[in-house]
Design a protein around this nucleic acid. Sequence first.
DNA 1: GTCGTATTTAGACGCTATCTAAACATGGAC
DNA 2: GTCCATGTTTAGATAGCGTCTAAATACGAC
Lengths: 132, 132
Amino acid sequence: MVKAIQQLRDAGIHPTAQRVAVAERLRTMEGHPTADEVLHAVRQTYPTISRATVYNALALFADHGVVHKRTLREGTTVYDLRSEPHHHMIDEETGVIHDVPWDALHVVGVDELTDFDVLEYQVVIRGRLHRS
Amino acid sequence: MVKAIQQLRDAGIHPTAQRVAVAERLRTMEGHPTADEVLHAVRQTYPTISRATVYNALALFADHGVVHKRTLREGTTVYDLRSEPHHHMIDEETGVIHDVPWDALHVVGVDELTDFDVLEYQVVIRGRLHRS
DNA sequence: GTCGTATTTAGACGCTATCTAAACATGGAC
DNA sequence: GTCCATGTTTAGATAGCGTCTAAATACGAC
């Protein structure tokens, strides 16, 4: 609770009760939830919160770097809870998104791209997770 | 016309009039059109074609490798008309998707990923195109 | 030509996300 | 503390993209 409030303040976000509830819940979630998954999770502790508020909160968090908005799944936007850069692997069978550590891959040639300013980049892999 | 029919046959797709019309139109399109953009383009030459038919045709084409379905833009799926592999740069301001030649970047370490089978990968860059 | 299958069609439906207008809360000035 | 201006939340309406459905149509094999 205190941590979540501090996290929002540090990011320059006014910590309302609803936003704190969302931030709190995000800390306990894993993977790459959609906005609706966050909405339903938050409603377990804050049943009256509205859809628009959760969507607004997530958009605000993304603007302030608390989470990252990602276009990785078809039909819906997912929120990436990890702040450190990393790559992604999307399982073709299940659609599940897995993180790939930043250091596992190295992209050569980004600095030589002169046509545009690179703000961010990542490798997106489509594949299949090994059953092990 | 003949070329489009041949392209579909080569891919193992039964070339109906509607599918040929879609394939024909795709050959004249540039960039990364959405299904609805393809629909409206095709209707210029085939005004009675239905939405479902264009969506079905594109899904079929994607299944047979004629085009690639890509999740790069928020809220909608785009179809990639180029068959050779390449990377993508998404302009943060305009949302326009640009192709980056495969040879412009080199990803090191993909072969060493042992947790999963890699079917395909690409670098996705977010940035800003230089005005020049 | 006849039959069975594949395809197309218009419209209904579902889902994700945004917008709207009203209600509500909050922080600062006094 | 009270007042006001501003920021926030809310429920429901709305919009956009995509899929589904059932009926009509076209097609290939025989």
